[in-house]
Amino acid sequence: MADKMHLKLTINGEHLETLCEPRELLIHVLRERFNITGPHIGCETSHCGACTVDLDGKSVKACTLFAAQAQGATITTVEGLASPEGMHVLQEMFREHHGLQCGYCTPGMITRAWRLLQENPDPTEEEVRFGMAGNLCRCTGYQNIVKAILAAAAIMNGRDATADDAVKTPEEVA
């Protein structure tokens, strides 16, 4: 067991520090040392994206990054998206459009979508699907996740959120 290192991070606007082993993965430091349990562990091989957090303006998978590599970084997790005024519009739209079921992928999914909409504020359905392809969901089949993200983008761009009929089903149209 190596000596512990002094890790300093800014997480969700708060300056936090801890001692950890250099080999500890960022996801474990977040979950075990800081009790930030929104990001989850699904595969430990970077495939599923349940552990997605935002690190210095990029979506990263915290299960395959040493915490040491994040030294000094500014991190946003799903816990940091809501404001005192309420939920983030993405969180609201995931609820509105039934973009989640078991909720396990949801924190990573929303955190990734939050960055995607900063990278590309007005994406097409195809761009959303491509931009979210690093996050797996076993419950929803993605259709309503895509719908939620497009609706959030519409609202953030000042448009009517109901104008997302690209993925509406005949039942809904009827």
Partner: peptide, 11 residues
Amino acid sequence: DARFTQGKGNY
């Protein structure tokens, strides 16, 4: 959903 979308699930 209010819990799950804000990272407040308890798995």
